[in-house]
Amino acid sequence: MATAPGPAAGPLATVAPPRTGRFSGPNGRETATGILFVAPWIIGFVAFSALPMLASLVLSFTDFDPRQADEIRFVGAENYARMLSDPTLIKASAVTLRFALIVVPLSLAFALAVALMVNSTLLAGRNVFRTLFYLPLQIPIVASTVVWIGVLNVSNGWLNLGLGAIGLPAVDWLNSTFWVHPALAIMGLWGIGNMMLIFLAGLQSVPTELYDAARVDGAGVWARFRHVTLPMISPVLFYNLIIVLIATFQYFTQAYVITNGRGDPGGETLFFNLNLFREAFQFYNMGYASALAWVLFVVVLGLTAILFRTAGSWVYQGSGER
């Protein structure tokens, strides 16, 4: 079957493999083959995504109310202009950014730490541990939210009972403007199963030879992690970063269920997308909601594009991205 990577290659050696062979330059045949493989997505995009996306862009220039679809009016850039003087939107954007600054690094670090732990040869029963860390993702959202409301209750929630057992004061997690973000972040950690799995897949594909070579060079645990593991899993780290970034900017479900969509307490959980949802389906300002969506879209797409630009400098491409 397939062969192992080149002998005794140091971490840097594989970064720039020799570019030889038929694939070394673009040609008609390569283009045709590439497009052929990508075609399923192109067809699906045209069939199922393009029209709805375009429609929402068009709707963002209207006063569309889904209950009164026939009374739709073109309002020019009015929806976009309205954003400049919408205090709720400003607050929602600030809340979302603040939350993202906690949650993105925290969940990436936690998922990676767990992946390293359940990948360690020092761990007995790794299969069981992997399954256990993945378990929460298999709980239906209706149930898991009810669970968390119970666990985070100020007087008889298990989290506070645990804190009390080690002498810490009780925290009103869900009703305090200060504690609600940490509470949601803790809830978010419960859903790291996918990220963990993806990191794990990355860790699995780091060739053991690299660690052996590093050991021979006298690298300790941290140096091996820093100079072998991190570069080698940087592609999946990059993936997780992009996905968690998109997910955080679209953060919605938990906040919606916990607060019945009101953004309690004090608007601290009125995230950008929850505000968008309210505009769309509670106030029926679908035109304005569409405009909000497209602004978020441009911001997140811009961030993603920037990350892709910087990727060349820190994301390892075993096959040499061309």
């Binding site: 429609a55 929402s56 709707l59 998109i246 997308n273 968008l276 679908m286 879209f297 997140v300």
Partner: peptide, 20 residues
């Protein structure tokens, strides 16, 4: 094309729900 593909998951689904 790749960025366009990512774009499909960046746009919040709430606003494409009705057209979809």
């Amino acid at each position: 094309l790749f960025l366009l593909m990512l774009a499909t998951i960046i746009l919040p689904f709430q606003v494409t729900l009705i057209p979809t």
